[in-house]
Computed example of a mutant assay.
Amino acid sequence: MMREKRIEAMGQYILKKHTVSMKELAQTFSISQNTLRRDLGILLEDARFKKVYGGVTVNEENTLVDFSERHQRTITEKKQIGQCAAHLIVPNDLIFIDSGTTTAEMAPYLPQDFHFTLITNSLQLLNAAARLQNINLIIVGNHFNYRTQSFTGTETDALFQNYNISKAFMSATALSISNGVTNSDLEEFKIKSAVMNKAQVNTLQKNILLLDHTKFGKTALLTYAKVQQFDSIIYTKKMPQKYLDFFKEHQVNLIPARA
């Protein structure tokens, strides 16, 4: 089993069992204690987990819950961010919008008075775009994930090689200066990484991060981008000064969303 998949499977196992001993993890995943310690060094960067004596347990305050419950958290803030992001779409854009509770709030505000192309793996965006005749809709993924309300499981690298995205609207589980922009789901990570990697060869692609205030200063399991890979960040509430300084230093444009 590849290390990334093993660590994700280990995380899902701990979430299911809630508290697991080091011995049980080593036996379940057929790895040595040294390998387990290295894996846990990465896994424990995810705020959903914490070390306890002799094992690992779930950090209840940071556990990723189903989309419907996460969607209701800071909903007013997410609506403001989603509306602001949708206003950045212009005629003939080829945009990507990934799945997430904040990017989902772009759905009610998708432009209806000019033509553009939308690539997405978000069920909410698909449902909204399917009702609009002005949108050329391209769907990513062939497997539906109820927990994230998204589609995954396709050859993402090959797909994004064929399209020159003008704007990529991205979400994240967490953001920190040390660990960058992170996500908790491996299949979502693959899609996010493919989109961000395409920007390295398509210099016209603008990467835009949608982030509510609860995501700052936290880390999830998988880093899919460095903060400085984004051209802009849309936010609402006052941002900690160290982040303002970091974004200014790396020339990341900050877009405050207003009510």
Rank of each mutant, 00 (worst) to 15 (best):
residue 172 A to Q: 11
residue 138 I to T: 12
residue 173 T to M: 12
residue 158 A to T: 14
residue 163 Y to L: 15
residue 150 S to A: 03
residue 176 S to L: 04
residue 126 L to M: 00
residue 136 N to C: 05
residue 132 L to M: 02
residue 125 L to D: 02
residue 175 L to V: 08
residue 162 N to G: 14
residue 172 A to L: 04
residue 161 Q to A: 04
residue 161 Q to Y: 13
residue 165 I to G: 13
residue 136 N to I: 10
residue 138 I to E: 12
residue 123 L to M: 01
residue 125 L to K: 05
residue 133 Q to Y: 15
residue 127 N to Q: 06
residue 130 A to R: 03
residue 150 S to Q: 00
residue 134 N to G: 07
residue 133 Q to T: 12
residue 130 A to Q: 05
residue 140 V to G: 08
residue 126 L to Y: 02
residue 162 N to F: 14
residue 140 V to D: 11
residue 147 R to C: 11
residue 124 Q to H: 00
residue 175 L to A: 05
residue 175 L to H: 01
residue 155 E to K: 14
residue 161 Q to E: 10
residue 163 Y to N: 11
residue 122 S to Y: 01
residue 145 N to H: 14
residue 141 G to I: 11
residue 141 G to D: 05
residue 172 A to F: 02
residue 125 L to M: 02
residue 144 F to T: 09
residue 169 F to S: 05
residue 173 T to I: 07
residue 153 G to D: 08
residue 148 T to H: 02
residue 167 K to Q: 11
residue 161 Q to K: 15
residue 158 A to Y: 15
residue 156 T to G: 05
residue 157 D to H: 11
residue 133 Q to K: 09
residue 173 T to A: 01
residue 167 K to I: 15
residue 122 S to I: 02
residue 173 T to C: 06
residue 128 A to R: 15
residue 128 A to D: 02
residue 129 A to F: 12
residue 138 I to C: 14
residue 148 T to M: 09
residue 173 T to F: 02
residue 167 K to A: 14
residue 128 A to Y: 06
residue 134 N to D: 00
residue 128 A to G: 02
residue 141 G to N: 04
residue 156 T to W: 11
residue 122 S to T: 00
residue 131 R to F: 04
residue 163 Y to V: 15
residue 131 R to I: 08
residue 154 T to P: 10
residue 147 R to W: 14
residue 136 N to P: 06
residue 141 G to Y: 06
residue 143 H to N: 07
residue 158 A to M: 15
residue 127 N to I: 04
residue 161 Q to P: 10
residue 147 R to A: 09
residue 145 N to D: 15
